[in-house]
């Protein structure tokens, strides 16, 4: 083993390289990487998680980002986020593929860490979120047409979404068949959001809010 390695003192070159250049390069690389992929975007808004996901903040810690839930999903509905603090965590883009809530919940079974609560066994008790009609002016049914696609597609038809008939004041002689979401039944699977016929869906899954004041309450 050679003993002539000469690092008893620190040369100027070594100091510049090790002491200044390397940290600078590191800082630049970190800043570059972080600015591209730690964008705050999805970190704070609502993310539709797979069934059984625990509360958002604890979910971000509990999920080890292994992607097994996504690999277990037979519909390929579960994707992995690719930026922000939630990088690698699973989400469902209901507009592309909603959750069809398999009775045996393979995603929950696949989760190793309890980020998807293993006590979740009944699909009807899942609360991924709650569907909401976010654009009442846009909704074809509320405008008096017989669309009702969300109602027909809902796996809990007549429970999570019902049609409430009322008089159509605009024409004076027709009925408005208004789809109404019942949040005590809605599982938040996103099938309605996926099915909405409008280019920008007027019914979307949002965070489940325990106490919610709507202008109408059935």
């Amino acid at each position: 083993m050679p003993k002539e390695r000469d690092d008893s003192g620190i040369s100027r070159r070594r100091f510049l390289k090790g002491g200044a250049l390397a940290p600078l390069a590191l800082a630049l690389a970190t800043a570059g990487g972080a600015s591209v992929y730690l964008r705050p975007g999805e970190a704070h808004g609502f993310v539709l998680r797979p069934p059984g996901a625990i509360a958002a903040r604890r979910f971000l810690a509990a999920c080890v980002r292994c992607g097994k839930c996504a690999q277990a999903c037979p519909y390929h509905a579960i994707r992995l986020q690719d930026r922000s603090v939630g990088i690698g965590t699973p989400y469902i883009a209901a507009r592309q593929i909603p959750c069809y809530l398999c009775p045996d919940l393979p995603c929950v079974k696949a989760c190793p860490s309890g980020a998807l609560d293993p006590k979740t066994t009944e699909v009807e008790k899942v609360r991924m979120g709650t569907a909401q009609i976010v654009d009442r002016e846009g909704c074809l049914s509320i405008r008096g047409l017989r669309c009702e696609v969300c109602y027909r597609q809902c796996p809990l038809i007549d429970q999570a979404i019902t049609l409430e008939p009322r008089h159509n004041p605009r024409t004076g002689e027709h009925t408005i068949m208004e789809p109404v979401v019942h949040r005590e039944k809605c599982v938040g699977c996103g099938v309605c959001e996926n099915a909405c016929v409008l280019p920008k869906p007027v019914i979307v899954v949002r965070e489940t809010v325990e106490v919610q004041r709507d202008s109408y309450d059935f």
């Binding site: 625990i54 810690a61 509990a62 080890v64 097994k68 190793p112 860490s113 293993p118």
Partner: peptide
């Protein structure tokens, strides 16, 4: 981070440590 190989569940100990400390969930 976590895997299943031929039916055996394997986990990265550091990932496990972080998940347990951060979430308080222990499986």
């Amino acid at each position: 981070a976590s895997a299943e190989l031929a039916g055996v569940r394997l986990s990265d100990p550091l990932a496990c440590l972080q998940a347990v400390i951060g979430s308080g969930v222990l499986i």
